[in-house]
Amino acid sequence: MRWLTPLLTAVLLAPSTVYTAQLRFSCSQLVVDRLDPLVNPGQTPSPHLHQIVGGNSFNATMDPSVVDISQESTCTSCQFTEDFSNYWTAVLFFKARNGTYKRVSTIGNGLGYTAANGGQTVYYLSSGKVTAFKPGFRMVVGNPAFKTPAEARTNPALQFTCLASPMTRSGYRYDFPSDTCAGGIMVTVRFPTCWDGVNTDSPDHQSHVAYPVNRNCPASHPVRIPEVFYETYWDTRPFNNKAKDWPTDGTQPFVWSFGDKTGYGNHGDYIFGWKGDALQRAMDANCNSDLIQDRLNCPTLKSQAIAQANTCSVQRRVREDLDGWWKELPGGGMP
């Protein structure tokens, strides 16, 4: 499949944006597997490894004819129990000095979600009235084929942060950090916030959505939708001994599961799966769980404790030793 950049002629909402709704919650790890039902539907195994959170109906095809996936799941690894969406990214690997690879684990966000069994923090943000996604909605952001800074800057929504502590929210960059990070590496993925109002998907999984231009949705994509935003904490701390483990030439040792050593190929995938009108209710109520640490603060939604979310998982379809050392990346590390 050919990867395309979404319609993008301006930057995202500025960091100073005042959000009316800030739905923030933890999604524990559902599974780590070599499946990609959007880019490689039905292919088992897919070319590279992913880490997935959300509803337990996740599978190799996510058949588009099954429009409402919330009816297929029996549990979710997310705190809001009406959210059976699936959220996934590539997997980070450490390349040792001897050339072998070790998978890097995810850990719970240090800002209130350390009890999570890995996974990621998910946000739904709005700065005014938005239209929630329709059943069957899916999208991809980013491009694993990107290898240059210029390419990465065409999509400022995908960034890395070297965590000095869980509180670090500065020093964003488009490539992997070049030095050790005391708290690990945080990877952020922000999806477009404008929709064409018609298609719940497109052949490239990107053309039906767009980023705003000067804060306004373009005429081609006039419907404002919630901003979906992931924060994934990768626990790179076990690999912080530069003198022993890092390449002798001083270059950074991390690589995405599709073989990208730069970080510019960062990307994320999303399939909507909220039950009924739950997400629209939360957006209309201007729920704000981001300002109260470790409290969901959205009475219109049903929720579960992180400990319960940790119990929702699925069996890996591709049987691989994901805890061992690899001579090459699973699948050969191709986009």
Rank of each mutant, 00 (worst) to 15 (best):
L7M: 14
L8P: 12
V11S: 14
L13V: 09
S16Q: 13
T17L: 06
T20N: 09
Q22K: 15
Q22R: 15
F25Y: 13
C27E: 04
C27I: 03
Q29V: 06
L30S: 15
D36E: 10
D36Q: 06
V39G: 05
P41I: 01
Q43W: 09
Q43G: 06
T44P: 08
S57W: 12
F58H: 09
P64L: 00
I69E: 05
Q71W: 08
E72M: 15
T74G: 05
T74L: 06
Q79V: 06
F80R: 02
S85E: 01
T89P: 00
V91L: 05
F93K: 14
G99S: 04
R103W: 00
I107E: 12
N109H: 12
N117A: 15
Q120W: 10
Q120Y: 11
Q120D: 12
Y124P: 00
L125I: 03
G128E: 00
K129G: 11
V130H: 04
V130Q: 03
P135Y: 02
P135E: 02
G136N: 01
R138V: 03
V141T: 14
G142I: 00
A150D: 13
A152L: 02
A152F: 01
L158E: 05
Q159K: 12
C162K: 02
C162E: 02
M167P: 03
R169M: 12
G171N: 07
G171E: 06
D175G: 14
P177H: 04
S178G: 11
G183E: 13
I185H: 02
T188R: 14
R190G: 10
P192C: 04
C194T: 00
C194Y: 03
V198Y: 07
D201V: 11
P203N: 01
D204S: 02
H205A: 08
H205F: 11
S207R: 00
V209N: 00
A210N: 04
V213L: 09
N214E: 10
A219G: 12
S220T: 12
S220N: 11
H221M: 01
V223E: 08
E227T: 09
E227V: 10
Y233A: 15
N240V: 08
N240M: 10
A243M: 13
G250I: 06
T251C: 05
P253H: 07
F254P: 12
S257N: 04
S257Y: 07
G263Q: 05
Y264A: 05
G265R: 09
D269A: 13
G273W: 04
K275R: 14
K275C: 06
D277W: 03
Q280M: 06
D284C: 07
S289F: 02
I292H: 15
Q293R: 12
N297A: 14
C298G: 04
T300Q: 15
A309H: 08
N310D: 02
T311N: 11
T311V: 08
S313I: 09
Q315N: 14
E320F: 11
D321C: 07
D323M: 09
L329T: 03
G331P: 11
G332A: 04
M334A: 14
P335F: 10
